[in-house]
């Protein structure tokens, strides 16, 4: 029964990994940008929520109303004033610039908030649970987390597949120059894509912040989880990313069941196995790549 529980917990956690991963793969899909600061920006979102909660006494979930738009603005500006200038010159500049951003964000957080672990308190919500059988009960909060993650993914899926913005994102991903020919301001679109990316990151950051404690140096680990979900699920497919996130979540939960020290390791091993045996991911689309 513990194992079944572990799998259920992992699945519920996987939704958040999928959200994290979606932001990473959106930026990669649209502008071939691998954002090494992704995890640190995720942690930044959690700290922003902490500030909002401390200042207003609001529930962190309500704080999302403030944190998500702020992170979107940060994403937009980051792309506009910095990252756009790192694109187009090969693989090195974006990697180095986002690495620099990661270092800056990490150490600013360390400076402002100290190295102490923090947590977000969502109140009684966190302890409520739904009993399935007498041995298996599912926490209400993890369930909500998965639902929100799937909801955000559905929303994104709708935007990408049904709206003019989504078409523009896909077109730019296909062929930036052809996109400019139809009148798309690709730089502005990149900024919008980064705004969306950090919006999803913000949601994931707040939920993860409620679930576990976080500190200024936790960013790289978040980046790695996002990245592993992307690769496990298969590059560039939104639902593949969900599968990847859930697979990673389950692997970690199972690893944790074996030995708590091996939670992350189990995820890494799954990632390496996928890389070795199915490098296109578990759920890769054969044709029509999506952002």
């Amino acid at each position: 029964m513990e194992w079944v529980n572990a799998v259920i917990q992992g699945t519920l956690l996987g939704g958040l990994y999928a959200l994290l991963a979606t932001g990473l793969s959106l930026a990669f899909g649209v502008m071939r940008l691998v954002n090494l600061a992704h995890g640190d920006l995720n942690i930044l979102a959690a700290y922003l929520a902490l500030v909002v909660v401390t200042a207003t006494g609001a529930n962190p979930l309500v704080g999302l109303v403030a944190v998500v738009p702020v992170m979107m603005v940060i994403g937009f500006l980051l792309q506009r004033v910095l990252l756009n200038f790192a694109l187009g010159g090969g693989v090195l500049p974006p990697v180095l610039v986002t690495f620099g951003i990661a270092v800056v964000v990490q150490n600013v957080l360390l400076d402002v908030f100290s190295a102490d672990s923090q947590g977000l308190d969502a109140g009684p919500l966190e302890n409520a649970s739904v009993t399935l059988t007498d041995q298996i009960s599912v926490g209400f909060f993890p369930l909500l987390t998965l639902l929100v993650a799937v909801g955000v993914l559905l929303g994104l899926q709708f935007v990408v597949s049904r709206t003019q913005l989504g078409r523009a994102l896909r077109a730019t991903s296909d062929d930036t120059e052809a996109a400019r020919i139809v009148g798309i301001d690709h730089r502005r679109l990149y900024s919008i894509a980064m705004a969306i990316s950090l919006g999803t990151v913000a949601v994931a950051g707040v939920f993860l912040g409620i679930r576990t404690t976080f500190g200024p140096s936790d960013g790289p680990q978040r980046l790695i989880f996002a990245f592993e979900s992307v690769i496990i699920g298969g590059l560039g497919s939104l639902w593949g990313t969900l599968v990847g996130g859930v697979a990673l979540g389950v692997a970690q939960a199972v690893g944790n069941q074996v030995n708590p020290a091996y939670q992350a390791l189990a995820g890494h091993l799954l990632f390496l196995a996928v890389l070795a045996f199915r490098p296109s991911g578990l759920f890769a689309r054969r044709t029509a790549r999506q952002v």
Binding site: Q164, R167, A168, R170, A171, S173, D174, D175, E177, A178, A179, I181, V182, G183, I184, A288, R289, Q290, V291
Partner: peptide, 21 residues
Amino acid sequence: PEGRRVFPSLSVEENLLIGGY
């Protein structure tokens, strides 16, 4: 453009719709 450069991820109609961007 030379070589057409239509968007392969978009359907035919979506290619036209994005033309009206």
